[in-house]
Structures are given as C-alpha cells and as structure tokens.
Amino acid sequence: MFVSIRRRQGRLVLVASHLPVTHKATPEESARHRAMKERIARCAERHGLSAQVGARSADGRVLTAVLVTGAGGRRIGWEAQYSPITGETVRRRSRKAAEHGITPLWVTDSEQAALIDRTPWVRVDDFSSRDIASRLAMFVRGGIRHFQVWKCLPTSERPCPTTGSACGRFHSGWFLPTLCLPNKPPTEVDRLVVASTDGEFVPLCIRAADDRRAVARMWVPVTDRDRWWDIIGPPESTTDQDDTADPPEEEIAFTREDIDPTCRYGEQQTLARNDPRPRRDRPEATGLHTFVRAPRSLFAFPASSPTLDITAAQRQAAASRFGCPIWEIGPCRLCGTPIHRYGNRSTHACRSCRTALKHRIGPTPSGSSTQSP
C-alpha cells in the first residue's frame, strides 16, 4: 500500500491506494539500453561528430548515457530510458544537464513514460535490442512536431479549432508529421542525432494558456520555431528546463473522516488497477493559436515590389529569352531581376528565388496563402 500526493479539484491531497507491481526490469531492457547507446554513438561518429558513452561532468554531478558534441560546440545528452522512472527524477537530471550546458534528449518506447513533456524527449517503436543494433530504419513516432498555419475557410481541409466551422481567421498549431497538410515524412533517429547537434532541430517548450503548470515539450525544426516566435513573440526565457512541479509552499488539504480499520482490498476482483498510468504522448495538435491577420513576417514576398530599371534593348532581350511580349516583362518580387511577370504562365519570382523560397517555407497547405493574408 502506498500514500502519494495527487491533485484533486485544484487541491493537493494525500491518496492511499494499493498499487500492484506492473513492471519489472528485465535483461532485455538493459540490452536495449546498451544497443541504443551504441547506435547513437556509432551514428554520431559516422557523421564526424564527437560521441562519449557514459560521459561524466568535471564535478561528477552529471552522468550522460551518450554525449554528442558538434563542430559548433553544441552538446546533446542522449538518455535511453526503457525502464520506469519518476517525473521528479527526470526533471532533476535534466536540470543538472542544462546547468552544465548540455541539452538533454530522452528516448522512450512507451506512450505512458513519465519523462514525456517533462524534458526534451522522443518516442520510438518497441524494437528488440537486435533490431536497435542493426541498420534498420528507426523512426521517431512522438516528440517531433511541425508548425502549420492555415486560414479558416470553407475550403480548408482542417476544421476550425474554436468554432468547428469556417471563421475566416488564421490558426496555427504544432502537428505530428503524419497529421500535417500535406503530410511530412517522419524523422529517423539517426538523422535526429545529427540534426539536433547541428541546430536544425531544437527543443521547444509551450505552456498552456489555461494552466501555466501544463506544458508541452517537443523537438521542432528551427525554421518552424522562428515562425512561431514571429507570431506569438519570443519567450521571456529561452531555457527549456523550467520546473513544472507543484510549488513547495502549496499546502496539502486534509478532510476529517472516521478511520476504517478494515482492509477491504480484494473484496472486488476486477482487472482495473487503482492508479493506471495515463497516456502522456497524445496525437492531437498542441499550441493552437488564433489571430485575425497574418503577421508580415510570415509573408513570402515583401509588401513593396522592386522597380524594373532597364533599357528598351534589355527589355526586348528579356522578352526574347522568355518568349513573351515586351509588356509582360516585369521585376522579380524578391530580387528585381527581369522575368516573365505578367500575362499567361507568368510567375511572381525568378527560378532561383522560388527555389530558395520553397526550401525556406516548404509546401503550402491547402486553404492557406504565402503571399497575402
């Protein structure tokens, strides 16, 4: 029998319950832990990164399963966690790693792991130690999200998150790759080893608007994070290790009841446990935000178009090159280069600018626009 602290109706109370042992550590878990460490270190070294297995800080306070260091000095501390662990232990170890300049990255295969949303994390498939050590592709199933912005129109593929019908406003949120429009490919663990060290993927912490203690932590592309900050503004603190535990000064509420000396455990034989672990890795979107007008920072093209200052001979040469009348020649909206700007089959930007723009913002979801709100 155990006594634990739980939150009930906004108050902290002591709860007594019989908690059966639902999990026992097995040798296979140790083998998977070792195989995951070897896979991360092998991938890092294959891409020219420094990897230390069982790295310990100078003061001995921080022990990292695999410490991956990039050329720019960015350090990622990988922790493969296949056995149960408490949320407070995860917060404490992650906080110590952050104090030593290490960005923690915890790996689990359980949707109910206590480390989810308490530290930068990812979830992978339930692979055996042999599969982990092999060259099989190992995809991240949870913990990586992508930023999506769309205008709420009757033709939009997404329903309105606030009214359920088209409201005409703009919405944004963080989605799993398979729930993005269009779908984005999942990220492999081997790629994340390199992308997290290079800064292509960064950790992000989003606090719920209605409950400041509730947070969602995820790994996101750095370009998506910058777009998110352009909309809501950068946070006051960019650290991801804010403690979300209950404040220590919060009092525990007591209710006076007569003591029942009879233990009634086992009187009702059911398959339901007293305190089943909830699912912490949820597929629905997080960080949903609604705004009336799109910020100018999200526009693909500047508000003012550059002018085309060329001679008549240069205009004629451009028309011959594009095979169009001279009056359909105009400036590229980004660089001002003469292009086939007007008329049928015309474009707003030159080929090089369109290629750079595509890599910067990616594909445009249905029902949204990258040029104007």
Rank of each mutant, 00 (worst) to 15 (best):
G287T: 02
S352M: 12
Q314R: 11
T255P: 04
A253C: 07
G266S: 08
A312F: 03
L308I: 01
T255K: 13
F254M: 10
R341H: 04
A356H: 08
R296H: 11
I310S: 13
P338G: 01
C332S: 10
A294Q: 15
T337L: 04
C332G: 07
R279G: 00
E284D: 07
L357A: 12
R282H: 04
E284N: 04
T262K: 13
S297Q: 12
R296V: 09
A253K: 14
F291R: 08
L288H: 08
F291N: 11
R351M: 06
P325K: 01
C335F: 04
L357H: 11
T255Q: 15
C324N: 02
D275S: 09
C263A: 08
A253E: 15
S297G: 11
Q268W: 09
E250M: 04
A294Y: 05
T286I: 12
T286E: 12
C332F: 01
P338D: 01
T337Q: 07
A303P: 03
R341P: 00
G330Q: 02
S352R: 15
A272F: 11
P283F: 03
Q268P: 00
S320G: 08
I310E: 12
F299C: 00
F322T: 06
I329M: 14
R277Y: 03
F322R: 12
I339A: 11
T286F: 13
E284P: 04
A253G: 03
T290W: 07
T286S: 14
H348V: 02
F254H: 14
T270V: 15
D275I: 13
A356L: 08
Y265C: 07
L357E: 14
T355L: 07
E328H: 12
R296A: 12
A318D: 08
T307P: 09
T290R: 13
S346A: 13
T290E: 13
V292H: 05
I310C: 08
L288E: 14
E267R: 08
R256G: 03
G266E: 02
L357N: 14
A317R: 15
Y342C: 07
A317W: 03
P302A: 13
I329G: 09
R341E: 00
Q268H: 11
G330A: 02
T286M: 08
R341V: 00
P283W: 03
A349Q: 06
H340K: 01
C324G: 04
D258P: 05
I329Y: 11
C350D: 09
R277W: 01
R277I: 05
